[in-house]
Nucleic acid binder design. Structure first.
Lengths: 346, 346
DNA sequence: AATGTATATGCAATCGATTGCACAAGGAAA
DNA sequence: TTTCCTTGTGCAATCGATTGCATATACATT
């Protein structure tokens, strides 16, 4: 009802000028004298005029929107609700807002092969940020082929033909495992995310490298995969305990799963950290305030999100962009104790 | 490089027909004979044609996009990373995808008054989903005034002039507190989210109602507010313990904060559940797998998200829509024990 | 053969902005 | 007074799709 001023044409009528002049005035063009600009601006403001972004974007052949492709939705049966995703989304959104870009969220749908194409070819977005990188990701290959603007969360891999930002999972896992070994742990288990996920694969390499360096044997019974959910972390831990009851250390690929794993250990009568030491990954805020506080590999999640956003914009605007590996840091808390002669009971 | 077929005009040229025919064919109009449709579809497919959604939306005066306004970003200093948000976003995104709507994410920026206007008046989105409702929310009032399409997360309040979907926080809190009372707890604390947030306010009412019903005194020392972050939950608990060391029960407005509060209790030498019983809110997956597993008030988060999405679309498409109150359910786990004569130590 | 009807297709306007080019008015220089 | 330049403004095309209306062809009806 109230407002009949929706387009530049409306303003032009009110101001007694043409649409071109309104457009130039509102875009602060030097062609228009300050006096006229001011008059037009005032009218626009008075009538609560807002630019129709879609129309401008069509004309300018851009969308000023980027899509974050994140596997958090209920893919088939499982639903991921890891704070990690929210943190990185928040950081991305903040950075994009600085550049006046909007953020579109999409759960990646592995089943739907054409997904990327629709967004890229359909000019729905100017670029994409991919969060869950698979090993030999076909979607990413497709994006390279299409020449799309996109960046990926994860450390750069040898020979990769796209830009990525992430922390060094191999090193992160290695630091965690080294710490466990130094505490005297010898039967160290590994709980990954999905087996086909690159991050998990890298961390497993770090885990294995470090065991080998210490001369410890690799044991397939000490490896389990989960899906970055609390529940899957819990069951992975139970499974490991069933297969290898002598586990005395665990490296888990996310803090959320680590918390659940600690509870599984407790339920099986193991004390953390006295019987089993455990190290998580991410250092989400929860890690500092769970019971016991979790030793974990800190990723620079917010910095990563901001870099993803700014590098994508650099790409879109045609600048040269390099991949980045962010450092990780082992944060030591109470969930890791030194091996002691089993002294449970009162 | 590769692909020179970007618009319907390109396809029209290849097919030797007009753009109108291409448009009708691809939209499966009955005006076009099946044979022609098939030919055009084949060409479109061969050349990887994708519709330019922005152009269509401009013509059709819609955006096929909705915005979720969520206070998770780093508003000033704090950053919220509660799995609750991710779950509800996931559910919303899934439902919207069914209707071919895209989901735009925006951190609400309390400082920026004109935010809503830009999205609504600027025709950036067809509708909004508001997650963190404030008491006397000025932004929401503005949306009502503008006649925007939007829905709000939270139970309907008396006299409210918009549609909302949410669970009954008064009842949820009351159930939690009643349970604590039944277990023999008498000094029951309350940890809220932000004080100006409607959900927190409702739950506090439920808390107070239930205490009064049981004839227990209200004590301001037993009330603390936090910000839905782990850290703030932790400090709220410490603060409460400093003010009222005899606390024997706590009702916390989110599971994430409850986990942190349990750790604070543990650090202060209180055993959960023997010394202090604690009840959370939400029933995120973590709640079942933390230590100890958390008694909590289950909200139907996913169902809520789906309802928000479908009701918003109903609104956009002009259908009559009613607010909904979802039931809550107390999920009893180990974090609540009956009051026992203090029997700590070996 | 003339008229009517159904079917297939195209023209051109439209959505709301941006911008190259043309043009008009005013002042300065010759 | 004429010419030239500067400054301010508008016309019209454009971005890529949709769709009402007009038209063209084929076929059926009388």
């Amino acid at each position: 009802m109230g407002n009949e001023v929706r387009t530049m044409a409306d303003i032009a009528r009110l101001a007694g000028v043409s649409v071109s002049t309104v457009s130039r005035a509102l875009n602060d063009s030097p062609l228009i004298p300050e006096e006229t600009k001011e008059r037009i601006r005032r009218i626009a403001h008075t009538y609560n005029y807002e630019l129709h972004v879609g129309a401008r974007n069509l004309r300018l052949q851009r969308t000023q929107t980027i899509a974050a492709v994140i596997p958090f939705g209920e893919t088939s049966d499982r639903q991921v609700s890891d704070p990690f995703y929210l943190e990185i989304i928040g950081a991305i959104a903040n950075k994009l807002a600085e550049y006046d870009y909007d953020l579109l969220i999409s759960r990646a749908h592995a089943a739907d092969e054409g997904w990327y194409q629709r967004y890229v070819l359909g000019k729905r977005v100017d670029g994409l940020i991919i969060i869950g990188r698979k090993l030999n990701d076909r979607g990413i290959a497709k994006l390279v082929e299409l020449g799309a603007n996109f960046v990926v969360w994860g450390p750069p891999l040898p020979g990769q033909r796209y830009v990525s930002v992430g922390s060094d999972g191999v090193s992160g896992a290695a630091q965690a495992v080294r710490h466990l070994i130094q505490l005297g742990r010898r039967r160290i288990a590994f709980i990954g995310g999905d087996e086909d996920e690159t991050e998990t694969w890298l961390r497993r390499r770090g885990y294995e490298q470090e065991l080998q360096r210490a001369g410890l044997p690799l044991d397939a019974n000490l490896i389990a995969y989960a899906h970055f959910t609390s529940e899957s972390g819990y069951f992975a831990m139970r499974q490991l305990l069933a297969r290898a009851p002598d586990i005395d250390g665990v490296f888990v690929c996310s803090d959320l799963m680590a918390v659940a794993a600690m509870e599984a250990l407790r339920q099986e009568g193991r004390d953390v950290p006295n019987d089993v030491s455990i190290v998580g990954y991410d250092d989400i805020p929860l890690a500092a305030h769970c019971s016991p506080p979790l030793t974990t590999v800190r990723q620079q999640i917010r910095r990563g999100g901001m870099l993803l956003a700014s590098k994508l914009i650099d790409l879109i605007e045609g600048r040269q962009v390099e991949s980045v590996t962010l450092p990780v840091e082992l944060i030591i808390r109470e969930s890791c104790g030194a091996k002691v002669r089993s002294a449970r009971g009162c």
